[in-house]
């Protein structure tokens, strides 16, 4: 999307804050794990609170450093979500292709983001667990069917295709709302990298919080620079909060 005009050696590097939202057990953490570590873990235990991870992605013209908030899907953590999406430039709203309620939840998140998050936020709608479906995403069909039994989080019914939400349904909703749309499998890795690359490309360069360039040293400093605004708020709220709890 971005014209590759200048291909000089040290590409400009910028950090992008990304938040993952979605119902419990749709595979948010697994997507991140695939993206960050290129790994997959069966029966992953539920995230508690939120996990913070970073990963760099190289685009033709620049390097994007994702600062990822992987939030827990359980309802009781929902009230904490604003803290994570408040300054995010991008969001990944995930649902489970085999579970209709998860798309409803995803729509709620999209609405909340559009209402509350920063105006220019780039939202990607992601239908995960493509490996449990048949036919849809070409590569997924190649997966042996018996693996579905092993899949812990899957609501799969044992026959070949556990898909409950058609590609069309997801896509048309995404188009209505102006979201990026992907169907992925964190297990097989299908489309995972593509989602993040697409997000990186969709973020206008002006919105990026560019930090010092070059490799290495930029990492820590960049984060803190990007977070400067947060810290100002913190010092204000801290005093009372502490009193409140130290009773």
């Amino acid at each position: 999307m971005v014209d590759s005009g200048n291909a000089s050696a040290p590409k400009p590097s910028s950090s992008v804050k990304l938040v993952l939202l979605g119902e419990a057990a749709v595979g948010k953490s697994s997507l991140v794990l695939r993206f960050v570590n290129n790994a997959f873990q069966e029966n992953k235990e539920p995230t508690i609170g939120a996990a913070f991870l970073t990963q760099k992605t190289a685009l033709p013209t620049r390097t994007i450093k994702f600062e990822i908030w992987d939030t827990a899907g359980q309802e009781r953590f929902a009230s904490l979500a604003p803290m994570y999406y408040r300054n995010a430039q991008s969001a990944l709203v995930v649902y489970d292709l085999t579970k209709p309620t998860s798309l409803i939840k995803a729509k709620h998140w999209v609405a909340e983001l559009q209402r509350q998050a920063s105006p220019g936020i780039v939202i990607a709608l992601v239908g995960n667990k493509l490996d449990l479906t048949k036919g849809a995403g070409g590569e997924a069909a190649a997966l042996p069917a018996e693996e579905e039994g092993v899949e812990g989080e899957g609501e799969g019914e044992g026959d070949g295709d556990a898909r409950k939400i058609t590609t069309q349904e997801g896509r048309s909703y995404a188009e209505e709302e102006g979201l990026l749309f992907f169907e992925t499998s964190a297990k097989s890795g299908v489309n995972v990298q593509e989602v993040f690359t697409a997000i990186a490309n969709a973020i206008p360069e002006t919105q990026m919080k560019t930090s010092r360039q070059g490799a290495g040293g930029g990492a820590g400093g960049g984060t803190q620079a990007a977070l400067g605004s947060d810290r100002v708020n913190l010092t204000g709220g801290k005093g009372e909060a502490k009193e409140g709890c130290a009773c």
Binding site: L33, V36, N37, K44, T47, A50, A51, F52, G244, C245
Partner: peptide, 23 residues
């Protein structure tokens, strides 16, 4: 194993009942 296996850093709301079970 969940937290460790996830990698990364974690931010966890937790009530420590011995400290204060109300918040």
């Amino acid at each position: 194993g969940g937290i460790k296996a996830g990698g990364g850093e974690n931010w966890i709301p937790i009530c420590l009942p011995g400290f204060n079970k109300n918040g």
